[in-house]
Amino acid sequence: MSKTVVITGSTRGIGRGLAENFLKQGCRVVISATRQPAVDQVVSDLTASHGAGKVVGKACDISRHEDLQALWDFACAQFGAVDIWINNAGISLPRKPVTEQSAEELARITSINLTGVLYAANVVLAGMKAHGSGQFWVMEGFGSNGAAQPGMAAYGATKRAVNYLAKALRKDMAGSNVHVNVLSPGIVVTDLLIGDYDTASPEWEKARKIFNILGDKVETVTPWLVNGVLKAQKDGARVEWLTTGKAFRRFMIAGFNKRDLFADIA
């Protein structure tokens, strides 16, 4: 039986790649982002590719609890129930010390990357528990494992917190058939990744070398992630693209495997 999947932040980047590949696997998909015109355009594009009745969309600002409730209600009204909810929406900030970031920037990244996931948990886990089952997926990123780099305090802290949140939510859902799981896409070439850097700076040139070893494009990573999500059967599942072993092997062959994922970046 095909599953219904809601993906926040799914009009571009990893989110859109996930949506396209869930559709290829026969799922029904609900697209979401902050702007309705962008949502409508992606729904139109994906309908043209995959047929009518399989994809719908609704704008949602995940920093607003009422928007998340409306998105849940919309998905249920369209498809009857939500089997998989993926908290993909997130933002980053330019890499600079937290002392140089504004209060508004810090509040915004926290409201999207952490508070938005808490609000989603409040809405979605209650709905899935009432329905009797479901999977709630959070998205890891830099900082989830405790790693730290200059200029990444705010982003890394939110991702570290989401990692803890997933563990705590599993405790809350113990004894139910509602699972809280983790997606770890690794380093994926998106606007979110590149937007952290001044691409004319020495820092970018250093980062670019590492990204070209460890990074991948959306079209490479997302089919694999979708297959992992659809195969997951147990609470606490973890679908991780860039494992420690894979990273080690890539560094070992880096001298023989020249590539440039950013050839179109000035």
Rank of each mutant, 00 (worst) to 15 (best):
L93M: 08
V56R: 13
L118A: 14
T158P: 00
L125S: 05
F79Y: 14
A154N: 01
I86Q: 00
A70Q: 04
A70G: 12
S144V: 03
T99A: 10
I62R: 08
G134E: 00
G90D: 02
D67Y: 02
M152V: 01
N163P: 00
K159Q: 07
W137S: 08
G134H: 03
F142Y: 13
Y164W: 13
R95V: 11
E140L: 12
R108F: 11
V138Y: 06
T115Q: 13
R95S: 13
F136S: 01
N122C: 10
A153P: 01
W72Y: 15
N122F: 13
V117P: 07
M139C: 08
T99K: 10
A81Y: 09
F79K: 03
G80T: 09
V117A: 07
D61I: 00
A126M: 05
N87P: 05
T158K: 01
N113H: 11
N122K: 12
K129E: 14
R64M: 09
I109G: 06
I84G: 06
M139F: 07
G156W: 06
A126T: 15
Q69A: 13
C76F: 07
M152Q: 11
A153F: 08
T115M: 11
M152P: 02
N87C: 14
G51K: 04
L68T: 10
E100P: 05
D45I: 09
A48N: 13
G116M: 06
I84F: 14
A77R: 08
R108N: 14
I62F: 09
R160P: 00
S44P: 00
R160W: 14
S92N: 14
A121E: 04
Q78M: 10
K129N: 11
L106Q: 12
G53C: 09
D45E: 15
V98P: 05
T115F: 11
A148L: 15
T47P: 08
A120L: 01
V117I: 12
N113F: 01
T47I: 00
A52K: 09
R108S: 13
F142C: 00
S111H: 14
A81Q: 14
V124E: 02
Q78N: 13
G53H: 04
L71M: 08
D73W: 04
T158M: 03
E100V: 04
T110K: 03
P94E: 10
K159N: 07
G143K: 01
A126N: 15
A120E: 09
A52R: 11
G57L: 04
S49M: 11
E140V: 08
E66Y: 07
C76H: 05
D83H: 09
G57T: 04
Q149S: 13
S102P: 08
A161R: 00
L118E: 07
W72T: 02
F136R: 01
S133T: 13
G143H: 03
L106N: 11
K54C: 12
D61Q: 13
C60P: 07
L106A: 07
E140H: 08
K159S: 08
N163Q: 12
Y164Q: 15
L106D: 05
G146I: 02
W72I: 00
K96Q: 12
V123L: 01
A147S: 15
I91M: 14
G90T: 05
Y164P: 01
I91G: 08
Q69P: 00
T158G: 02
A121M: 06
R160T: 06
I86T: 03
L93S: 05
A161N: 04
I91K: 10
R95N: 12
M128W: 03
R160E: 09
G146Q: 13
R160N: 10
D67I: 03
G151S: 03
